[in-house]
Amino acid sequence: MSTAAAVKKPKISVPFDYSKYLRKGKLPHIWCPGCGHGIVLKSLLRAIEKSGLSKDDICMVSGIGCSSRTPGYVDFNTLHTLHGRALSYATGVKLAKPEMKVIVVTGDGDALAIGGNHFIHTCRRNIDMTILVYSNAIYGMTGGQFSPTTPSGSYSTTSRYGNIEPVFDCCELAKASGATFVARGTAYHVQELERIILESLKHKGTSVVEILDSCPVYYGRLNKMKSASQMMELIEKNGTVSVKQVDKLPPEKVQGKLLRGILHKEDRPEYCEEYQKLIDRVSGK
């Protein structure tokens, strides 16, 4: 064979060394085969590498659920807390040590159901932290119950006749609550996800990244998607449209789809900085 491609000088890329950030003794992880959480974690670690943050300066906080097991595997200051309360613990850590980079890893049930109140108020305060919502539209850890992001009509172990509840749009909720950086990525579009997470880490204020993820074992099995790749295809082909393309596409190709990319970004006073100003104003008085 002597095609042009064959004679082209091969691109040599050094594989990214994830082990620098992993607690290797704590692996293998508990995630099921086909779960997207590992893909998301890898995007996150690449973004952290590019951000230049040091491991000592990162505090990763989580609640309860499959995604919330992430902190156990990474070599940062790590805090695995109560169901729904990760943002409150994270608020305490951040206020006590504002120089730290706080990353919250949470799921759709953890952030938007049991932790919904904390989610909206954290966004409102605009306290500096990156909140990664791994949204796989199901409660995986407890065996496949519907969550606030389970699509209407979908099946779960607690919606055997189809889910009659409407969904929360995590990004709209974050934006309306006051988050100053709101984005959506997916476990399929991994390079885009890495870029989005990197931007969220650079942002000063509350950043929310909803990450559409897949749970083939529970969501897939109950909704007639036989394999993990089938679920990825759903995310790729049917589920989302990039914000960069949305204006160029005919309305019928956009309808019913979720937007991907950075959806909202604004500058607004950050909580810890405002608190420091208050201290400077009143201290010694």
């Binding site: 409150s88 613990y89 305490g92």
Partner: peptide, 11 residues
């Protein structure tokens, strides 16, 4: 929850 987080960060 917040006080537990702050205590772990040293306060």
């Amino acid at each position: 929850s917040a006080i537990a987080g702050a205590s772990l960060a040293g306060l």
